[in-house]
Design a protein around this nucleic acid. Structure first.
Lengths: 246, 246
DNA sequence: CGACTCGTTGATGTTTATCAATGATTGTGG
DNA sequence: CCACAATCATTGATAAACATCAACGAGTCG
């Protein structure tokens, strides 16, 4: 049921070919990557690695969503990364995972054995260059997230999360309808709480409040409609104008 | 009084030579960097760039401390980076600053004009490799910080900050005395508040509480003594054992 | 059907923010 | 040199935001 091993697939038809760590690779480089890659799938909710585990691979997310999180001894948990398709998992040169990694939705990874990948990175600047670019983007995202965690109200936090998810959907060319934007929430209330540094009750209450105020509409518990994105943007507390909407 | 332009200095005698973005460069590469570098100094409190400003240079912090922070329209501010000696400022390929950068203490930067630096990065893999390593370290630090912001109590936040600063001092081989560890606080109460997502009053109260409970001792307002680091570590709420004390 | 997960909502409690006063220190101009 | 302003820090009183504890509804799986 779990850990289905996918068949080999061609890089040429890969949905993340042009955004993942291999984005800049030439044909010959792709062939080399091809030789050390293998696919691996997980069902929603399954753990991928635990903090402290040895990790012998790095990977790209092909489909689905994974979370990185840190847990304190008493159970308090903070999500510190949300990996979407094309995002990279693992750190070359490090063999022990510093975070818990969990499949939030059904997930497929394109894995590379770590040692060969590291050796290839030395020979292939395109990989390191792309990884640097992706890591800098992640750092920017982490810093935006720090503002959310440190300074925003519960309502602003929820609005910010909705805006981030809506923008992502839009950047993939999806979700726009005649009545505004829409997307599927990939996270449970508890996962949203761990993302935002709130309790799940507060998440639930604030979602209800935004719904009551007409900022969002729910279809079922997971499908979100944004009738007016500018209105949502105002609720996030962020600059509406000038700022670099990262 | 401000913006003193330092004289040219030799890379060979540079205090951050082996930790900064140039750490892996060979002699000839250093000479090339030398040709595009210039020093620049700022006094404590001075702005270096504002969010939205054009930024035509990247730089290494040589001495002193700088902060990156994000401000909301109503004045709420979150620090999102603290740059210490050897840390890198700026992003190759980006010409507009996304954060306010402020000199927290007196500060000297080793600046490189951005365009020549970017061209050199293409020719010189050592620079990109080192920058990737440093960026990954910063991302780890940002994620530890996210746990602090999202899930720790005010007391744990203060204890965590003290522990981070004490560890840094120790990693430079400084601060250890017969009565434990000591260091100078580089931040005002307000800057600590912006770092930790608190108000300055709460920072002040929690410092007083830790002092009252004997976890720390103050000499003046800025010099901190840690009589028992393990005790402080417990106050941070982090794993005392196992965890990778990053 | 009963157990389980996920989500919602209410009542209450705790933590931290806000507002306000004051002390200590430093720099400035008369 | 002193009076004054300005900055940084501390502490108290009160208010607001969010967490905690608790009950319950809806959907799903065995």
């Amino acid at each position: 049921m779990s850990d289905v091993i996918f068949d080999h697939k061609e890089c040429g038809s890969c949905p993340i070919r042009h955004r993942a760590v291999c984005a800049r690779c030439e044909t010959d480089e792709l062939e080399e990557l091809d030789a050390i890659k293998y696919y691996r799938s997980y069902e929603a909710g399954q753990p991928i690695v635990w903090s402290g585990d040895r990790m012998d691979f790095v990977a790209s997310v092909v489909t689905g969503v994974a979370s990185l999180s840190q847990a304190m001894e008493d159970g308090r948990t903070q999500m510190v990364g949300l990996l979407l398709p094309s995002d990279f998992l693992g750190r070359p040169g490090r063999d022990v995972a510093p975070y818990d990694v969990i499949a939030v939705s059904n997930l497929t990874l394109c894995c590379f054995r770590r040692k060969p990948f590291e050796q290839m990175m030395i020979r292939t600047p395109h990989i390191g260059q792309r990884l640097l670019e992706m890591t800098l983007d992640e750092l920017d995202a982490a810093r935006e997230w720090m503002l959310i965690l440190g300074r925003k109200t519960a309502r602003e936090k929820i609005a910010s999360l909705m805006a981030i998810l809506a923008r992502r959907e839009a950047s993939l060319g999806l979700g726009s309808t005649e009545n505004g934007m829409s997307f599927e929430l990939p996270l449970t209330r508890e996962a949203m709480a761990d993302y935002l540094g709130l309790t799940l009750e507060t998440v639930s209450r604030q979602i209800s409040a935004l719904k009551r105020d007409g900022v969002i509409t729910l279809e079922g518990k997971r499908k979100v409609l944004i009738p007016d994105f500018d209105r949502l943007q105002i609720e996030t507390g962020d600059d509406t104008d000038g700022g670099l909407m990262v």
